[in-house]
């Protein structure tokens, strides 16, 4: 038995523990609802599918965030990239809505990437500035109010409707997941991403154009945030101010809970997927329990610390 757990690789252990923790959340929530209401809504397929639909937006953002965390950077411009993509998509409307929304994400990612890869500004501060600029542009564009324009039918269909009983947003999330998994595991780009995260200088000396790869990662992250924005606008039928604010820290938390090293170079996409499900379920169980916002924040923080204490500890500095 112990040999089985020992043979788990360093990257798989967090994923297994996080998955077990999801079961713990489900069981604890079900015990609670059974004791209080005499029913077990948490285990019904309808409820779980609805949670997946809500989780899809966070999942897509987290997939992009993982690409930049793997190269030891971070993207703080996600909130207003997401909002800007949603606002531009709804205000353009028509068949061009989605391409324009994604174009916003691509452009933001390109600016981020150039500033960080070529000007070597720390990503923490550069993406912060880009976030402020995007916020400024959108406030100037909308006048500070929620834009009156609505989402197009295609956006609503992609985010809100269901096919064969499964929300379409989940299919988009699955497609995104397959794409990221293939990039990370089956392409040279993926190899380079891990190499840069481990030691950029070594990757450079090995002949990798590390700056180009960095730009690509930020573009992917911007595209993912924009896609989530377009979908979220479709789900809530319109764009609104601050719609991306609730996605920045949870997406980072999901990536890290999934076992990806915040210093880059290590981590599997499956972990990020599990991390997203964990956060979404935790949130929904806490809301079923009528937990006030104060308690939610405390539990949320304690869970992150607890998970990292179990498997995310760094090594002692000895030389």
């Amino acid at each position: 038995m112990s040999s089985a757990s020992l043979s788990l690789s360093r990257d798989d252990r967090p994923i297994l523990i996080a998955a077990l923790f999801i079961l713990v959340i489900l069981v604890a929530g079900t015990v609670y609802t059974f004791a209080r209401f005499g029913s077990a809504p948490l285990l019904s397929p309808t409820y779980l599918l609805q949670q997946l639909q809500i989780g899809a937006f966070l999942g897509i953002v987290a997939a992009g965030m993982m690409m930049v965390i793997l190269i030891a950077q971070i993207d703080l411009s996600v909130p207003w990239t997401l909002a800007a993509a949603a606002m531009m998509a709804t205000s353009i409307g028509g068949p061009l809505a989605i391409p324009v929304g994604l174009g916003v994400g691509l452009l933001v990612g390109l600016v981020n990437g150039i500033g960080i890869a070529y000007l070597r500004v720390p990503s923490m501060i550069f993406t912060l500035g880009v976030n402020a600029v995007m916020r400024g542009l959108m406030v100037a564009h909308t006048g500070g109010y929620a834009p009156q324009t609505g989402a197009t039918d295609l956006m609503r269909m992609l985010a809100g409707d269901r096919t064969l009983g499964i929300p379409n947003a989940v299919f988009v999330w699955i497609a995104m997941s397959v794409l990221v998994t293939i990039i990370l595991q089956r392409t040279t780009l993926g190899r380079y991403v891990y190499a840069i995260g481990n030691k950029e200088a070594a990757a450079y000396l090995a002949g990798v154009d590390t700056r180009r790869i960095t730009v690509i990662c930020f573009v992917l992250c911007g595209l993912a945030a924009a896609l989530a924005g377009v979908l979220l606008a479709g789900y809530s039928t319109k764009a609104y101010q601050g719609m991306g604010d609730a996605y920045l820290l949870p997406s980072i938390a999901a990536v890290v809970i999934g076992g990806t090293n915040i210093l880059g170079g290590r981590g599997r996409y499956l972990g990020t997927l599990i991390g997203v499900v964990l956060i979404v379920l935790l949130n929904s169980v806490l809301s079923i329990m009528d937990m006030p916002e104060a308690g939610r924040q405390v539990i949320y923080g304690l869970v992150i610390i607890f998970m990292l204490l179990v498997y995310g500890r760094g090594e002692r500095v000895t030389s």
Binding site: I252, A253, L308, G312
Partner: peptide
């Protein structure tokens, strides 16, 4: 705890 500062203080 040997947790990275950025994520520890986030929590």
């Amino acid at each position: 705890g040997r947790i990275q500062p950025i994520i520890a203080t986030l929590a």
